[in-house]
Amino acid sequence: MPTAHLRVWRGTDDGEYVEYEVEYDEGMVVLDVVHRLQATQTPDLAVRWNCKAGKCGSCSAEINGKPRLQCMQRMELYPEGETITLAPLKTFPIIRDLVTNVAWNYDQARAMPELRLRPADADGNRRMAQIDIDRGQEFHKCIECYICQDVCHVIRDHPENMAGFAGPRFFVQLASIAMHPLDTNTRRATVDHGFGLDYCNITKCCTDVCPEGIHITDNAIIPLKERRVDEFHDPLRIIARKLTGRG
């Protein structure tokens, strides 16, 4: 039976890494090994988890420095004998061990603009063509693991920016609302007010780490930036507005 060499963050902000050796079975994922560690050596090890299927987004942590879902990282990815470092999401306050307080994200969720649907048709239904909703389907895959929020350097390295920055997960939600075919909420409000889109410098770490493979930067953030360019910086639109007197 192979042995994993784990280096696990223990404690809170002033905690420390502690090294363990844990035997594991073929086919196990990192979360399985953490559970075995918890069951055999450290019953007080705090780790948040739920579905073990990569769909609940609970077991986010940093494995060898990369934000990941513990339940989706197979042990075969790490050569036997290599030390595997497990740390909590470093952007958020540590509650204990591998568990962080992600409540800041809930605050961002509450600040999102609401969807204002246009009136229903005469029969009381609202209809959307498939071609109009295809684009938004990708955004609905988000499992809110907050790995993208964790890796974003805007707040990871500069926590003072948390006051005016929604983060990549919520840019995905903004894009979902802004592109909704039935929404009547003003686009300018969606792209321009208070969400800190300007902080994003397109370094694409959020896209690189997304376990659902959502093209966060290309399909959500850049289109939102481009909608703002439509509003304020497109020379042809500026000329057209001057000529027509609109806007």
Binding site: P67, V154, D157, D198, T203, C205, D208
Partner: peptide, 19 residues
């Protein structure tokens, strides 16, 4: 170096983005 790579600490003490 903003950031040099994902999850690697960047050198700047403050950050204002593209605004």
């Amino acid at each position: 170096l903003s950031p040099p790579a994902c999850a690697v600490r960047e050198p700047a003490g403050s950050y204002s983005g593209e605004g």
